[in-house]
């Protein structure tokens, strides 16, 4: 038999000649494909008609998007888009691209039945018959929210590491420098920070440095070690460090890890630390006469 020419992206016709001796299983292949599609849970696989109304719905679609088949079949697939995308006519544009180019792929936010959003990878394929006549569209959607969150986390962490390099060292008061630490403390950042802090303490002749760890998400043994080293170095210069922003979780972690900060002046909040610093300096002024 001869194949008719057809658009590149249409569904290939059954390549098994019907005349071949049919094994029982092979004969039932046509029934099996929809069963497969229906039961796949990791991908939402659906058919859309030429206008974009939902024709079929599988287990993956229900799991990812939340609607049951009877709730969504017959509805326009723009239901899956956030309002701002609907306003831009994004759904229609996807179908147009799929129709003109055979295929459309996208990564973006989609909406579940309950209104929550997920990060989706979407492929829309135009389905045509042997004569090239458009029948409708196939749409495959994957939920990549977890992957996106992981990437986002990594991006945020590297951003934080960058920020550490530019942590400002602020002259909070005459004789008091303030370092608001943000993000995780690794060895290299801590060393850079230590250098800048020590120079600042010397240049400004400040007897007190407030090291605020409110913006530090967690403290592990290594971070604590870096803090302790910084504090020792500042003391060698002749200044004192007050560690501020020691939140309850941080206090718990420090004690559970067995990190001894008993030699270090610590305060729960920056405000409390500043008060202590001012008191210390006032005492000095008062005694000076």
């Amino acid at each position: 038999m001869k194949k008719k020419s057809r658009p590149a992206n249409s569904v290939p016709p059954d390549s098994t000649p019907p005349s071949s001796p049919a094994q029982p299983l092979q004969a039932r292949r046509a029934e099996m494909v929809p069963l497969l599609v229906k039961s796949i849970k990791d991908y939402a696989i659906l058919l859309l008609d030429k206008e974009g109304k939902v024709l079929t719905w599988n287990a993956g679609a229900e799991r990812i998007k939340g609607w049951k088949a009877n709730e969504i079949i017959g509805q326009h697939f723009s239901r899956f888009y956030p309002p701002e995308d609907i306003a831009r006519g994004k759904a229609e544009e996807e179908l147009r691209t799929a129709r003109d180019e055979g295929r459309f792929e996208d990564e973006g936010w989609r909406v579940r039945k309950d209104g929550s959003r997920f990060w989706a990878n979407v492929i829309v394929t135009a389905l045509r018959d042997e004569n090239g006549q458009l029948l409708g569209y196939g749409k495959i959607t994957r939920d990549l929210t977890e992957r996106r969150e992981a990437e986002e986390k990594i991006r945020k962490q590297s951003q934080e590491i960058l920020e550490m390099a530019t942590v400002p060292i602020v002259q909070a008061w005459e004789g008091i420098v303030l370092v608001p630490l943000v993000g995780m403390l690794d060895s290299q950042r801590t060393q850079q920070l230590m250098e800048r802090l020590l120079h600042r303490v010397t240049e400004t002749n400040s007897p007190i440095a407030l090291l605020d760890i409110t913006g530090v998400p967690t403290v592990d043994t290594q971070t604590a070690q870096h803090l302790i080293e910084t504090i020792s170095a500042v003391r060698l210069l002749g200044a004192e460090v007050i560690l501020t922003g020691v939140r309850p979780v941080i206090a718990q972690t420090l004690v559970h890890l067995g990190i001894d900060l008993s030699n270090v002046l610590t305060r729960s909040s920056l405000a409390a630390g500043l008060r202590t610093a001012l008191e210390t300096l006032n005492l000095q002024v008062a005694a000076k006469q």
Binding site: Q191, M194, E195, L198, H199, V201, T202, E229, S232, A233, V234, L236, L237, G238
Partner: peptide
């Protein structure tokens, strides 16, 4: 002890 330089304090630590 008065006036230790920052570089010296870092190295010593």
């Amino acid at each position: 002890i008065a006036g230790m330089r920052p570089a010296v304090a870092i190295t010593a630590t």
